[in-house]
Design a protein around this nucleic acid. Structure first.
Lengths: 223, 223
DNA sequence: ACCCAAAGTTAAGAGAATATTAATAACCAA
DNA sequence: TTGGTTATTAATATTCTCTTAACTTTGGGT
């Protein structure tokens, strides 16, 4: 199935230009003209990639990006900013908010398509890896459930993400810091005990022995 | 250890600018001024990232990139092109030849460092999952495991760090002073017996003969 | 062989990190 | 909004690591 791209810009000309060129390459395109619309359409269409202009009325691209990143259902989505040359600050903010790439205007169609192809190729490779089987546990990102020796468990989001992280590299010790970065994100600030509490909840459900504590270091999942 | 960046550009000013800014961020930088030199230095220094100008005398960046990609010993290396605005063709060729990113001139230091950090962060996490194999012992930083002839041992943090230090250079004698500096840090003050006690605990677990005492000097790990 | 500084040993207590519990806050769906 | 679930925090308990002190042993130098 064709990969989907959501194009967001308040200048209609640019939207058309992009849409024309990308559809020629076989991508399915959707469009939006401001941040709010972008977030709504992203939730609705679940595109693979969002091309997001930064300067827009109502809600700017940075904010839209932040909201999209927060959305559970839009996890592996790629976001690339469209930015005019010279918007130095925005570029930095863009990366901090989790952009995967940014593309400078004026847009050169051949460059654009080449670049997008490269981006989406990476993505395609990632995506197929969403069912984890470790020992007697199966963790499935797409259905969001954990199956332990035949029993289906339901974990809330944070617990799921945390378990998924640990189980994705069995044996590897994750420090509290890296757990925070990966499960909670870089900008939030939560107290350390929060992690313990989540670990405890998970242990309650899957058994104590599967997650080990390495005191002074972190946690790891063992088979 | 600091991550290494190889900067390649024929314009000395640009090389200096990049070097200055990246070293300020704590990266170790090497430089080259043309494609041939770049390939040679890449093989020699094994950088984590190559910043590669496209237009250069002797051998251009595209060709250099191709050669680096072919080199077995340089597998996981990252390559980002430096490209002047308007070099449309080159950008496309760059992606086709396997660039991970490209950065447009004129270079804005804050954007550059922000971007490079994002790139290298991904990489660092992979690399650091390295294991040390000395004789019949395997010491794995990422899992915090010490495996002795198949048996998995769990050492507390300090013991682990100490063993890791000694085992990282088998045969080398570490003085008490340097052990303190590296395992405990420069500012703390602990009594000398503390080291003995830790050594003892380690010896208990891995056997006496693997860590030798050189009286009046220090300790060393032997195979 | 003796002395003495350096290293080894042991056990106990301080201290730090994590576990647990319960209460509160944020969130989401009906 | 409301009711129910999830997330976070605070307070307290528990566990394990680290350090120390006191004492013993070792081994090189005279």
């Amino acid at each position: 199935m064709a990969q989907k791209i959501l194009i967001v810009d308040d200048e209609q000309d640019i939207v058309e230009l992009l849409k024309y060129n990308l559809e020629k390459e076989g991508y399915k395109c959707y469009t939006a003209s401001n941040g709010e619309e972008a977030v709504a359409k992203a939730k609705d269409k679940k595109p693979d990639l969002v091309l997001l202009d930064i300067m827009m009325p109502k809600m700017d691209g940075i904010e839209a990006c932040r909201l999209i990143r927060k959305e559970d259902s839009l996890q592996g989505i790629f976001i690339a900013f469209l930015t005019a040359r010279g918007e130095e600050y925005s570029e930095i903010a863009g990366f901090e908010v989790g952009a995967d790439d940014y593309i400078t205007k004026p847009i050169k169609p051949r460059v654009l398509t080449s670049r997008i192809k490269a981006l989406l190729k990476r993505k395609k490779e990632d995506v197929e890896s969403n069912e984890l089987v470790v020992g007697d546990i199966t963790i499935d990102r797409s259905s969001f459930d954990v199956v332990l020796r035949g029993d289906r468990l339901i974990l809330p989001k944070k617990e799921f993400e945390l378990l998924y992280l640990l189980a994705s590299k069995p044996g590897k010790v994750y420090t509290r810091e890296s757990i925070l970065n990966k499960v909670w994100g870089t900008d939030v600030s939560v107290v350390d005990r929060t992690i313990d509490v989540h670990i405890r909840k998970i242990r309650e459900k899957i058994g104590n022995e599967r997650i080990q504590t390495i005191k002074g270091v972190g946690y790891r999942f063992v088979v």
